[in-house]
């Protein structure tokens, strides 16, 4: 450990202390609050199983919202990512597209949800639109980074046949970045399920609507049913996507061991 490292660590610790003071993050208050947590947990243990069917339906609705949002968002994000990739476009094309995507990403999904609730009213549609926007911002970014990271050799080899730019994208860029794409979509879907679960907090549909309402009325036992369903669903989706990834992605990523020079 060099003195320079020590200094950096010291500065980080100091910043954490100052920031905690500023935001009123007080460990003592946390400790004092623990008994409250105990009460909540105790009440949550009074899980009311007769709400399980409702919770499952609400979760299904949430997953459907996340699914539509992910698919539509990805479909819009893909062409945008082609225009945002530095290795395929001139500065005049990629710079504005990137700026637009960056602007989209500055909004967390809950803010998009509020905006769309104002635009199209309360309900699931506002939530779907919020997820679409969020997905566009992130998938496009992940994807243009994947495109920029593809092996330049096939791009050069095929460009030197004198093919058109569209042919290059269709036959080199898409296949070379496809394995990343599948894993990104899976990741985005998992993430969107979690996000959609809380969009109900601002009235944009999904299971969060039930959770926030039961919590408001201190019905922790009912809220717990819904939260457990979310937990189970998220774990299940994680597990499924790990399976999918193992099956389709790990295999296709064995590189070509052509060594150069």
């Amino acid at each position: 450990m060099t003195p320079k490292n020590n200094l950096v660590i010291g500065i980080i610790i100091a910043l954490v202390v100052v920031a905690s003071y500023n935001v009123d993050a007080n460990p003592i208050e946390f400790a004092e609050g623990l008994p409250n947590l105990a009460i909540v947990v105790e009440e949550m243990l009074l899980v009311e199983p007769k709400y399980i069917p409702t919770a499952l339906w609400a979760m299904l609705e949430t997953i459907q919202m996340a699914f539509i949002g992910t698919v539509v968002g990805t479909v819009i994000a893909l062409p945008l990512s082609m225009f945002a990739a530095r290795n395929l476009n001139s500065k005049y094309v990629y710079a504005p597209v990137r700026a637009l995507l960056a602007a989209i990403r500055t909004f967390p999904s809950i803010l998009w949800a509020i905006l769309f609730v104002i635009m199209v009213g309360l309900g699931t549609f506002a939530g779907v639109l919020a997820i679409v926007m969020y997905t566009i911002g992130f998938v496009a970014k992940l994807q243009y980074e994947a495109i920029e990271a593809i092996d330049p050799d096939p791009v050069d080899a095929v460009s030197s046949i004198g093919v058109s730019k569209w042919q290059l994208i269709r036959y080199v860029v898409i296949p070379e970045s496809a394995s990343h794409l599948l894993s990104q979509i899976l990741y985005m879907f998992e993430y969107n399920v979690r996000q959609t679960s809380i969009l109900g907090l601002v009235g944009a549909g999904g299971i969060g609507f039930y959770i926030i309402n039961y919590i408001k009325f201190f019905e922790y036992g009912k809220a717990a049913v819904f939260m457990l369903v979310v937990l189970a669903a998220v774990l299940f989706i994680d597990w499924v996507s790990v399976k999918i990834r193992d099956k389709y992605i790990v295999k296709s990523q064995h590189g070509m061991e052509v060594t150069t020079k």
Partner: peptide, 21 residues
């Protein structure tokens, strides 16, 4: 020249094949 490239075969040192197809 781009048109001429259609009939100029170029095999780079790294071959430039597309792995997943």
């Amino acid at each position: 020249f781009k048109k001429m490239l259609h009939t100029i075969g170029y095999i780079p040192q790294s071959l430039g094949l597309i792995k997943n197809i």
